[in-house]
Nucleic acid binder design. Sequence first.
DNA 1: CGTTAGCACCTTGATGCAGAGAGTGCTAGA
DNA 2: TCTAGCACTCTCTGCATCAAGGTGCTAACG
Lengths: 349, 349
Amino acid sequence: MEERAAQIELTQRAEHLLRVLVEQYIREGLPVGSRTLARASGLDLSPATIRNVMADLEEMGLVRSPHTSAGRVPTVLGYRLFVDRMIEVQPLDEQLVEEFRGVLNAGEGPQELVERASRLLSRVTQLAGLVTVPRAEHAVLRRIEFLELSDDKVLVVLVLEPHEVQNLIIELDKPLSRQALERAADFLNERFSGLDLQEVRARIEHDLDCMRRDMDRLACAAAELGDRVFSETLRDPEDFVVVGQTRLMEYEELSDIEKLRQLFEAFSEKRQILELLDKCIEAEGVQIFIGQESGYDALAGCSVISAPYRVGGDIVGVLGVIGPTRMHYERVIPVVDATARLLGEALSA
Amino acid sequence: MEERAAQIELTQRAEHLLRVLVEQYIREGLPVGSRTLARASGLDLSPATIRNVMADLEEMGLVRSPHTSAGRVPTVLGYRLFVDRMIEVQPLDEQLVEEFRGVLNAGEGPQELVERASRLLSRVTQLAGLVTVPRAEHAVLRRIEFLELSDDKVLVVLVLEPHEVQNLIIELDKPLSRQALERAADFLNERFSGLDLQEVRARIEHDLDCMRRDMDRLACAAAELGDRVFSETLRDPEDFVVVGQTRLMEYEELSDIEKLRQLFEAFSEKRQILELLDKCIEAEGVQIFIGQESGYDALAGCSVISAPYRVGGDIVGVLGVIGPTRMHYERVIPVVDATARLLGEALSA
DNA sequence: CGTTAGCACCTTGATGCAGAGAGTGCTAGA
DNA sequence: TCTAGCACTCTCTGCATCAAGGTGCTAACG
């Protein structure tokens, strides 16, 4: 789709008209006729001329008529061209940025920040806000602790750097004494605290190799435990938070109950949306998926605008909004962009 | 409403007809006319007679006509009478009970069990399943541990009896040394582990009184810490899990988007639904709220069937389903009932 | 007295039709 | 290359009609 869009060549006039048409349609939500377009375009052209141009655009798959005698509406490809070439994204108003910053800095801990960001996105754009929970790989290990639960179960508590506590329960093959656990924790803390989780994991793997030769029993047990813990923790838990789903019910375009049902199903199943968001995680800046470009039927008629967010230079998650394809891209894009930046800031604090 | 329902006296014939009408309406979803009712009732009466009876029922507020020339539809009060007096709840098929038990016993930990129960309810009834997370008051304290996070912050890890770990962060007024924390934990563990949380809290409060006189510094600090922890923990976190909301979109009666929006809003706001579920927590068995009886506009057109579930004799939560008022009560009630019992069992295991 | 038959009446919902409005495609001419 | 004109198409609205299903009332019946 995007490749197809890239190849399309338009006269300047056609491009201008497409742009005016899309803008008008986004504002009004009604098919745009040649007469209206002639007036709105600012060009001194008659409706008939416009009609000729429209016929061309239709042939190229950029617009279509709902029926013979309605105006034209943009197709997915038309929107694509619009957002790729015709939008001028102004940076967000500085005052708003400050407000966002205020909201986000008032929260503490990743969970709360993610929720605040999602709520913020939804409130400001009037769409549904999505934020994935940040990956932990680059969090810094502050402390690890083992608590014996039963003969073969151990509770692991990980205290991570910015403000996060994770716990998980692991089952042991062979029981370990309380002292052994304590010593293992000391060993791991001494060696690894202050490093980020990826680093920790890498070192543990390296250590394991060395130790197998050394046969230092204690260190070996500790490293093995650590290995299990960190491979569990780093297998990304992959989850996201949605806020404001119900706003989507207010849009004309999504008034078909069956369509809505599919969409909401996608929200609660999570899988499809996660896959989609995953695609953005490597992208540089704001990404836009229009309609079914994403390939998921449930998202027909919807667009997703997303951006990755970073902590200390590393991408740790993705956020964005989802709403009807007929949305005000120019206004939403800077909001998503700024929120991503500010969430990153807030998480680093 | 229920008081009004209790006072209503009906001839046996009228009662029978109301019952047949409601059953028919639940099955077909269309207003029931006098002719149909005459045939379905099994009584040897003419439509004209039925019409007279219907006029009486209408005057009593048990049925109404959508318009002059449609059949009759039960009102909220009519449903109320129906479920209170006319339903015979058969216990759930033993085979199904076994299946339920299997599903629930395959889960571990309160969180997973709650989710499984909710999913189960939704799947079997084709409605939305609701389950509150169990209150912790009657969980047994196994172990408490303090980890120093910074000068004034301590991470508290509570290991509870069946299979649950909670952690919370508390801020200290005055910093405590690591050793002090360790000793406090030892003190609390020795004294309280094996008791349920309510008991623990009661004793701590008692201890605090005594200690203020004794002035044993260490014990006093420990008890104060403990007091803060347990008063935090017991302030019920009050949350619930919904599964299968999207099923509700498939019902004719809820096809009005605005109504759906309100309903879904209620799900995500949680407050109203929590209040409603709270009302059931003291009830003996299955409770039924029909339509707006609950007093929440968002639930107009919906009924909630709920039952509390117990661990070791104590009610720790509520579960149920929510669906259109026109639902198959006779079939749903036993499912809710059984699920509550089995979730209790599974949590105790 | 309760029950019933008959009847006039009411709504809804489907169907068909006509006219207005908006917009198109095409053709011929500037 | 652009534009004016025109026939055409489609939707929407209002209006009238019709059948179906049901009601309330009244009067008669056992």
